[in-house]
């Protein structure tokens, strides 16, 4: 078990590193898929097989596929060579990374007893769907429904965003109607910030809808 845990954990970290280090967006996504699979494996080692399967079905099987979809459709798999589209992103990432590392350090020093985990596993009783469903629909009914409402809102928002604006009477194309496959040169003429923002929202909303 320990062996499997170490192996899967290491692979998950490797996948994460690939995800952030890969120049190619598709490779990065594949790294993320690997990480998700390894996490599913970790769930499995904890006897949470339902969770593992759900993890694979939902995240690796659906969300990531849609991520890749978007990457391919937008032809965004070209290596990023220009300077970052989002201002101060490196600085922000540095701050975030520092905070995260600090959190891990705190966690490592305050970590004492694995018992809560074992208790959780015990509570799950082998992670069968029955227990899972009971727990979700009784104890955690409100959060569960809240999350589903959140998803509904996301769906509605996505539909609203995807809905194309009505054609202008004078025929002037709306800025949003800029073709997604337009060459880089053309896209660069769009006011800075507008195009990346569009891309971001699309990627996110698609993922949300299908999830």
């Amino acid at each position: 078990m320990m062996l499997a845990f170490i192996l899967l954990g290491a692979l998950a970290i490797v996948g994460g590193v690939i995800t952030i280090a890969a120049k190619n967006a598709v490779h990065a996504s594949l790294g993320l898929v690997g990480t998700l699979l390894c996490v599913a494996g970790l769930f499995a080692t904890l006897n949470a097989s339902f969770l593992a399967a759900t993890q694979v079905i939902v995240y690796a099987g659906a969300v990531m596929v849609l991520f890749l979809f978007v990457i391919m459709l937008l032809n965004a798999n070209q290596p990023v060579t220009e300077r970052d589209p989002v201002p101060y992103v490196r600085e922000l990432a540095g701050i975030g990374g520092t905070l995260l590392a600090g959190a891990f350090v705190v966690l490592a020093f305050t970590f004492k007893d694995p018992r809560p985990l074992a208790e959780g596993a015990e509570a799950l009783r082998g992670g069968s769907a029955l227990v899972m469903g009971e727990t979700l629909l009784t104890r955690f009914l409100l959060p569960f429904e809240a999350v589903s409402i959140l998803l509904l809102v996301a769906i509605v928002g996505a539909v609203a965003l995807v809905q194309r604006p009505a054609a202008q009477p004078d025929g002037v194309p709306d800025e949003l109607e800029e073709p997604v496959g337009a060459p880089q040169e053309e896209r660069r003429q769009v006011p800075r910030g507008a195009a990346p923002a569009l891309m971001q929202t699309r990627g996110a909303q698609d993922g949300e809808v299908r999830a």
């Binding site: 097989s49 339902f50 593992a52 399967a53 694979v56 079905i57 099987g61």
Partner: peptide, 18 residues
Amino acid sequence: NLDTGILALLALTSMGVY
């Protein structure tokens, strides 16, 4: 033999898309 046999199967076939 998994307790979540069908789910695991669905999970694996969904990976086949890749």
